[in-house]
Simulated scan of single mutants.
Amino acid sequence: MTDSSPAVAPEDASENAFQDAGAAAPDVVQEPRLWHKDGWMARVIKNEDDDGWAVEMIKDGEPEPALVGPWTMGRDKKNPKPLDTSAFNTLVKTASEVLRRHEQQLRALLHKRVGLSTGEGDIDVTLDIVPDEYEPYALLTALDAFGEQIAQVRVAPTFKLTQARAQTWAEGGFGRID
Results as ranks from 00 to 15, higher is better:
residue 41 M to S: 14
residue 91 L to C: 06
residue 148 E to L: 11
residue 87 A to W: 00
residue 70 P to F: 04
residue 3 D to F: 13
residue 66 A to C: 08
residue 80 P to M: 04
residue 117 S to M: 13
residue 23 A to C: 09
residue 76 D to Y: 04
residue 38 D to I: 03
residue 53 W to H: 03
residue 68 V to W: 01
residue 19 Q to P: 03
residue 57 M to F: 01
residue 62 E to T: 11
residue 156 A to R: 06
residue 25 A to M: 11
residue 112 K to P: 04
residue 49 D to L: 10
residue 101 R to L: 15
residue 133 E to D: 14
residue 145 A to C: 05
residue 82 P to C: 05
residue 142 A to M: 06
residue 137 Y to S: 13
residue 123 I to R: 00
residue 138 A to C: 10
residue 50 D to C: 09
residue 60 D to I: 08
residue 146 F to Q: 14
residue 11 E to N: 09
residue 74 G to P: 05
residue 31 E to P: 07
residue 20 D to G: 04
residue 2 T to A: 10
residue 176 R to S: 14
residue 101 R to Y: 04
residue 175 G to A: 07
residue 94 T to F: 06
residue 102 H to W: 07
residue 108 A to C: 03
residue 161 L to Q: 01
residue 2 T to C: 07
residue 121 G to S: 08
residue 165 R to E: 14
residue 153 V to N: 07
residue 145 A to G: 10
residue 43 R to Y: 04
residue 114 V to M: 02
residue 98 V to M: 01
residue 145 A to T: 07
residue 89 N to D: 15
residue 128 D to W: 01
residue 5 S to P: 03
residue 77 K to E: 12
residue 22 G to I: 09
residue 164 A to F: 08
residue 166 A to K: 02
residue 33 R to Y: 08
residue 149 Q to G: 08
residue 76 D to H: 03
residue 58 I to H: 00
residue 93 K to N: 02
residue 162 T to I: 05
residue 45 I to W: 05
residue 67 L to R: 02
residue 171 E to A: 12
residue 171 E to P: 08
residue 56 E to V: 05
residue 152 Q to R: 11
residue 11 E to P: 06
residue 177 I to W: 05
residue 24 A to W: 02
residue 95 A to T: 02
residue 130 V to S: 04
residue 92 V to E: 00
residue 139 L to A: 03
residue 23 A to D: 14
residue 89 N to T: 13
residue 40 W to P: 05
residue 14 S to C: 02
residue 16 N to E: 13
residue 16 N to R: 13
residue 33 R to I: 10
residue 157 P to K: 04
residue 151 A to C: 11
residue 161 L to N: 01
residue 106 L to G: 00
residue 88 F to E: 02
residue 43 R to W: 05
residue 44 V to E: 00
residue 158 T to Q: 14
residue 159 F to I: 03
residue 61 G to Y: 03
residue 165 R to F: 06
residue 145 A to Q: 10
residue 114 V to D: 05
residue 27 D to Y: 09
residue 13 A to C: 01
residue 24 A to G: 05
residue 106 L to E: 15
residue 64 E to K: 13
residue 137 Y to M: 10
residue 87 A to Y: 00
residue 111 H to F: 15
residue 22 G to W: 11
residue 17 A to Q: 10
residue 31 E to A: 15
residue 81 K to R: 15
residue 159 F to S: 01
residue 153 V to Y: 08
residue 61 G to E: 07
residue 9 A to R: 09
residue 58 I to E: 00
residue 54 A to T: 03
residue 69 G to C: 15
residue 83 L to M: 08
residue 47 N to A: 12
residue 147 G to Y: 07
residue 160 K to Y: 08
residue 3 D to H: 06
residue 148 E to A: 15
residue 49 D to I: 04
residue 81 K to S: 15
residue 178 D to I: 11
residue 27 D to R: 09
residue 39 G to R: 01
residue 133 E to V: 12
residue 108 A to P: 02
residue 155 V to K: 00
residue 17 A to K: 05
residue 151 A to I: 07
residue 32 P to E: 09
residue 88 F to R: 00
residue 20 D to Y: 05
residue 140 L to K: 02
residue 29 V to E: 14
residue 94 T to W: 04
